[in-house]
Design a protein around this nucleic acid. Structure first.
Lengths: 229, 229
DNA sequence: TAGTGGTCTAGACCACCAC
DNA sequence: TGGTGGTCTAGACCACTAT
């Protein structure tokens, strides 16, 4: 059995976790490690490169590889897709359009998306359910000057997110998370008391410097977004 | 000038973004691409592997490489470190311990951290400020059976987080984000009205299957955690 | 300037799996 | 069962930077 880069990687990681190589330690160079593990230098290189990407070690030419003082912590989330989220929780996903209005972009939206005055937008409100209980309220604005086809789409049949992914597979986005108080409408949609603290995700999507859509996703009371790292 | 794997990668990416290879397209195999780019197969492999890690393409032996239908979206956050966050915002960071009590772990904490009955814990409450205004309320519990040294640390001089990073450089953690209503105490600490919706981050940290600490970080009203992708 | 990591090459063998 | 990606090797040259 040959020496696998994963074997090397996990072995090196173990030495750091077990305190054999505490933070700040200078590791042996690639050639020496390759000799120790009985593998090619390229194999050690791959192992070390991945450890560096994970933030466990820091590499510099000539200076060598060091265990990081404060191992970097990067959290990775999958962008929550509501249908998958609901089904992963063992519930049946259901979706319903609430409102669909074509109108001129309000000022706050024009400012946020940098739209010209008088730009037409499509305002969609939709509810997402887990079994029969409200899960998420979607409040979406689509820039019709960038996506005129959206005006013809039947969003009763296809959730806006699905259509957007198919229409614009690649895009830049900014996503933000915060807490908000339920206003009267939101409280009614989500079945909670007015003033309840709710988790809010906002996303703005761009393509080639043009804003495509802005969406506010308000989650039901008690929602928690979590991950391990 | 030789063909760089970055060149190959960006060239391939461009073809997908530009619609030359729309979602679902089967890409040429590595050998053909290597011939096209005039480089070794390993170079193409590295480029494609990274594109796969980014979620742009999907690779399967024998089946080949395909452009993803719905390009996967992975969001990366740096784990927010309050001091850096505040200073990045151009404010002066200040920190103050509010309370420090050694006690037996309450039942809810024992359940969460899987502690034996009667386990001693250190309960710390601290405030983090941006300039003179409250920024974050830290409510932390440290398992003294795992970290007995914590009992002797002067947390007036060093924020708990900094001490923990130096004491336990490597650990597993679970982090969760949600929304919460300000109770009376929290409202007073953060200078907001009772019942205000606040952003809450909770983190539980483990090392070798033993819980080290559980912390609730409640942010001031209006806080927003955001990222691009 | 010398030591270290970064990358490319050409070839090889293998595991997986769609056909 | 054959084609594809996954990985390893041995060698080479180069870029960066600590000294």
């Amino acid at each position: 059995m040959r020496t696998d880069f994963r074997t090397v990687k996990e072995d090196l990681r173990k030495r750091m976790l077990d305190g054999v190589w505490p933070p700040g330690t200078l590791l042996p160079n690639e050639l020496d490690l390759a000799a120790e593990f009985g593998c090619a230098r390229a194999t050690v290189n791959r192992a070390m490169r991945e450890l560096a990407e994970e933030g466990l070690v820091e590499r510099k030419r000539k200076a060598g590889t060091r265990v990081r003082q404060a191992p970097l912590r990067r959290v990775q989330f999958e962008v929550p897709i509501v249908a998958k989220e609901v089904e992963a929780g063992g519930s049946a996903y259901r979706y319903a359009m609430v409102r669909r209005i074509k109108r001129r972009a309000p000022d706050w939206l024009r400012a946020r998306l940098q739209l010209a005055e008088g730009t037409q937008v499509l305002h969609l409100v939709a509810m997402h359910y887990a079994d029969a209980t409200p899960y998420q309220l979607e409040d979406r604005w689509i820039n019709l000057s960038a996506l005129p086809q959206a005006a013809e789409v039947d969003f009763d049949q296809m959730p806006p997110h699905d259509w957007l992914v198919s229409a614009v597979p690649f895009s830049e986005a900014e996503i933000g998370f915060s807490a908000t108080s339920a206003d009267e409408d939101t409280a009614e949609y989500l079945g909670c008391a007015k003033g309840t603290a709710l988790f809010l995700a906002e996303r703005t999507t761009w393509w080639e410097a043009q804003a495509l859509t802005y969406v506010r996703l308000t989650y039901r009371h008690g929602y928690r977004m979590s991950t391990r790292y």
